[in-house]
């Protein structure tokens, strides 16, 4: 209990978002999976992409409190961006990542004035409407996007000119793991910064924020931009490692899925969201190979139940367990 008392002089208080001991465990598990499951690296890579995508959306929903039903747009744009660039002959993977981030950031910048203002409901609608618009556009621009067939006819050059993408997916996995680690670190930094505190302030009480002089719209626009850019990175990674970019990557189902992943993982908790995304990816893969219909049914039921039961998600459990451990 005494650990909770404020330090008598200006000692640092407990960070609001702890760099919890769970973080090393996450990375240990990811590294271990490389050695333990060499035949499932493609799945592991997809899960890493899902984790990146979830972290990007958590910045919006978990930290700034913006609910979007169209976040997959940025994943899809990142995927198409890097795939199209590769088809034009610019096959360097890092260049592709940069392209994915840029195009998604650019679109987020254009959209942010509409998304930032308005109530929760208008925001849901605008994100849903814009997502439908972009989906339709991608569907129509067959020459560029391959329409309903998607894009598969592109190459990806060796990473840094050194590491070719091998058939077993080793390079792809390690590449995705590195990008995930960088995203994780970046988001940890952003969310514990003054800017991150301001975002949590908006989530907690958007009415008080202007009364303390906060440029709320600008904060939200910046977080939307950042979040879009990171999702774009995830999308580029997805296209490069699966050699595929398709319409479903920016579809409504992906958008709805990421809302669930982040909520079940525990919004606003980076470690919890990462674990939630990994668990979601694993369970989805296991169940949907058995029966996609039962998977969808189970998902629906879990979602409905989660609203009444598991408030705080996995992140909430980590917090509670951590508090319990400290007290013991």
């Amino acid at each position: 209990m005494s650990a909770l008392n404020p330090a008598s002089h200006g000692g640092l208080s407990k960070p609001a978002l702890p760099f919890s001991p769970v973080t090393p465990l996450i990375f240990a598990a990811l590294i271990a999976s490389y050695f333990l499951f060499p035949n499932h690296l493609a799945l592991a890579t997809q899960i890493l992409v899902l984790m990146i995508f979830a972290l990007s959306y958590d910045l919006l929903q978990g930290h700034a409190g913006i609910v979007s039903l169209g976040h997959a747009v940025f994943l899809g744009l990142g995927a198409y961006g890097s795939a199209i660039l590769a088809r034009w002959g610019f096959t360097d993977p890092l260049l592709g990542l940069a392209a994915g981030a840029s195009i998604s950031a650019l679109v987020a910048l254009v959209l942010s004035p509409i998304v930032v203002r308005g109530s929760d409901f208008t925001r849901l609608l605008v994100t849903l409407g814009v997502a439908s618009l972009i989906h339709e556009a991608a569907n129509r621009m067959r020459d560029l996007t391959g329409g309903a067939d998607g894009l598969a006819d592109f190459e990806v050059a060796p990473l840094l000119g050194l590491f070719a993408f091998d058939f077993e997916g080793r390079t792809a996995f390690l590449y995705a793991l590195t990008v995930f680690a960088l995203v994780y670190a970046a988001l940890w930094r952003v969310t514990t910064s003054p800017f991150g505190l301001a975002l949590r302030g908006i989530r907690e009480n958007s009415r008080r924020m202007p009364a303390i002089g906060s440029p709320v719209a600008r904060h939200l626009a910046v977080s939307y931009l950042l979040s879009g850019a990171i999702a774009g990175v995830g999308g580029a990674l997805l296209a490069q490692t699966s050699r595929f970019a398709s319409l479903d990557m920016l579809g409504f189902e992906r958008s709805a899925e990421i809302v669930m992943v982040v909520t079940l993982g525990g919004t606003g908790h980076i470690a919890g969201v990462s674990i939630g995304a990994a668990a979601f990816g694993l369970v989805k893969d296991a169940l949907s190979t058995v029966s996609p219909r039962y998977w969808q049914l189970g998902l629906g039921v879990v979602l409905m139940a989660s609203v009444f039961l598991a408030r705080g998600g996995i992140g909430g459990l980590i917090e509670r367990f951590g508090r319990f451990g400290r007290r013991a």
Partner: peptide, 12 residues
């Protein structure tokens, strides 16, 4: 979340 869950479950 609740209503998407309901929609998913009914669709399934």
């Amino acid at each position: 979340l609740f209503s998407i869950g309901l929609a998913f479950a009914l669709g399934a």
